[in-house]
Design a binder for these strands. Structure first.
Lengths: 241, 241
DNA sequence: CTTGATTTGTGCGTATGTATG
DNA sequence: ACATACATACGCACAAATCAA
């Protein structure tokens, strides 16, 4: 009998994240793996899987022979750039009300430089989507998406009213699992200033991404431009020995 | 008897990374965990640890019930921003010869806004270091470091000739383990243009970091400014369920 | 449509090593 | 020297997903 659809380690992770968010003092020590194992009623291995996941996201720092310490909580993190969230969630996390100002799309032949990135033939089609996302009504992100074309996509995109491309792809049983992302700082050119209603050149954070499905197949290429002063992108960088 | 100072899983990781870098076809499939386990003579658990690490760095994508697939190799990755490398290594990886153009340092009271970040009293001192790093002789990174002051640090910093702050800290038995990093795009102001020998405003990638030791103690705050057009910063972003 | 083989995912138990205080 | 706590490693069992016969 299946009680939940979540794995044990994922449930343990949630429980530990709860401890983290409720702690107040700086560098508080978590209960030992042994104690967490007993308290949550799962094996130490399962606890360790949960801790590893939290360590990867930068919440905790284990010290060999000493204990595991909380280095930050999830409440104050507005956006972890290593986590692939929707624009809607990123804007919401920063305390703004998200919206979409303009939306254009067409079907076109894949641009030459994207054939290798999307691993498709040069005469293949893509669904091109051009969007301006807003925070409290003001333009903050400009996005251009190129999605490997599937039969009838134009028509379905017209009929389905969703702000989320990820949701749209789910209707084709495609679930985006990760993206390979290049990060650049750019100064807005005329096109970008027009799109983002800027009167003067501003610094933008440019993310160039190839999105992959759970099957590891490249599905979508995106260029997104963030008004950098509106967003806090956080990341934990680790030394690899 | 200790034959190596590397953990088994780390050795397995190296062996698998070697397979990855030597594969040619797109989305090639790795040998199964079972086979890797037998071939490398370690347990399946150890193989899984190695694979998990490679998955976290975006080299492979496992598919439940199917196999593990190579999505990129390490040869073409110039700089994974989630990995905390030295500036020297980042510049070298991009194919340039690294150097340091200017170097200034002093001892000063900690700036007020850094007391909480470094978790020190407001009357504590820091070692301030101001550097311009070059690639093939051209300025490409401007860095300002603030290190929690330890007795005699000024004198020792004068006498030790190293380009690496990390190496300098090791002489105090402090090993940097990770940093918490905020990422911004900025347009160079007059000060930055002077430091980086720029004739006109350019887009810079600004990393604001707090560096922690292996003990999880904040040691150093850094502001670094990268000439964005000279560097490729890559990152794998994952959907969290 | 069912079955079986293969492969990754999850979970437990145990033992030993290493760092810290 | 000792206890505590995390790190590494092995073996085993079963679940779940996929695919081909």
């Amino acid at each position: 009998m299946k009680l939940t659809n979540k794995s044990l380690y994922s449930q343990a992770r949630d429980a530990i994240l709860n401890i983290i968010d409720n702690s107040t003092e700086f560098m508080a020590k978590l209960p030992s793996e042994q104690e967490l194992s007993e308290r949550l009623g799962v094996s130490r291995n399962t606890i360790r899987e949960a801790l590893k996941s939290l360590e990867n996201e930068g919440f905790i720092a284990p010290r060999h022979g000493v204990g595991t310490f909380i280095i930050r909580d999830s409440k104050n993190i507005k956006s972890n750039i290593a986590v692939l969230d929707s624009f809607t969630k990123i804007i919401t996390n920063h305390g703004y009300t998200p919206g979409t100002k303009s939306l254009y799309h067409d079907r076109r032949t894949v641009p030459e430089d994207l054939t290798s990135k999307l691993n498709i033939n040069e005469d293949s089609d893509v669904l091109y989507i051009d969007r301006i996302r807003t925070a409290d009504g003001k333009p903050v992100i400009y996005v251009e998406d190129y999605i490997t074309y599937i039969d009838g996509m134009m028509e379905r995109f017209n009929s389905i009213k969703t702000e989320s491309i990820f949701e749209f792809l789910k209707s084709y049983d495609i679930k985006i699992s990760f993206s390979s992302c290049n990060i650049y700082a750019v100064i807005s050119n005329e096109k970008l200033q027009k799109k983002l209603s800027l009167k003067e050149p501003k610094a933008l954070l440019h993310l160039e991404q190839v999105h992959y499905s759970t099957k590891g197949i490249p599905i979508m290429y995106s260029d997104s431009y963030f008004l950098s002063n509106k967003f806090d992108f956080n990341l934990v960088r680790k030394v690899i020995d």
